[in-house]
């Protein structure tokens, strides 16, 4: 157990100030993350405004059931993270550990679903870049009929956006695994749990990005 004093840097007046500074720093980082994704959302918006009918048609090839499943999985993981912060503030570290591992599990489920979605698309010629050549029939949909101009742009945007989002999920999994070992080693207390709080903020942002990606790519 690290005592509260060793967690307070000498250049801060007190824990409150240190905590607020760390949190503001994290929020500023999250703003840069929002702007990173904004570039891709703007690309989506421009291409959609130019070719609305192509985007509408191409989105039919993404399975909304899998997208909805992943939305629920990520919302559940956001819930477990929020609960883990509730319990770390109360010093109930066993519950924190269980909740962080549940979050890790949700993130893993998300990536497994994404893996099946990607490989299914790859095997039917829907890839990122010049190799785009949809073919085959799935669920009564003849993929070759979707080989229209600008369909490749839709799927390029799909792969880049969900790919970069997926990288964020993988990074989150790494951090949650590391946090879980620190919780198990008793590093956090109601006086000091900054890493849990900041990771929680990061994870909620990853959730928010998906909240927008799901309808834009799968539904409308």
């Amino acid at each position: 157990m690290i005592s509260a004093d060793t967690t307070l840097k000498h250049y801060f007046v007190n824990h409150e100030q240190q905590f607020d500074a760390a949190k503001l720093g994290m929020w500023l980082f999250l703003v840069t993350e929002v702007l990173l994704f904004a570039g891709m959302f703007v690309a989506y918006a421009v291409y959609r405004a130019w070719h609305p009918e192509v985007f509408l048609q191409a989105s039919e090839l993404l399975d909304w059931r899998l997208g909805a499943l992943n939305t629920i999985v990520l919302l559940a993981s956001s819930f477990t993270v929020a609960l883990s912060i509730h319990f770390v503030q109360k010093g109930e570290n066993r519950k924190v550990l269980v909740l962080l591992l549940l979050t890790l599990l949700c993130a893993a489920i998300f990536m497994v679903v994404k893996y099946f979605e990607y490989t299914d698309k790859f095997s039917h010629g829907i890839v990122l870049g010049a190799g785009f050549d949809p073919h085959g029939i799935i669920d009564g949909k003849d993929y070759s009929k979707y080989n229209v101009p600008y369909a490749a742009q839709f799927f390029s945007i799909y792969f880049v956006m969900t790919g970069i989002h997926g990288v964020h999920v993988l990074v989150g999994m790494g951090i949650f695994g590391w946090l879980a070992t620190r919780v198990a080693r008793g590093h956090f207390s109601p006086q000091w749990y900054t890493p849990v709080e900041l990771t929680g903020l990061y994870w909620h942002l990853v959730d928010i990005i998906w909240i927008f990606l799901f309808p834009l790519l799968y539904l409308i």
Partner: peptide, 9 residues
Amino acid sequence: AILVALIFM
């Protein structure tokens, strides 16, 4: 997104 930001975050 607003709900997540206001309450969860």
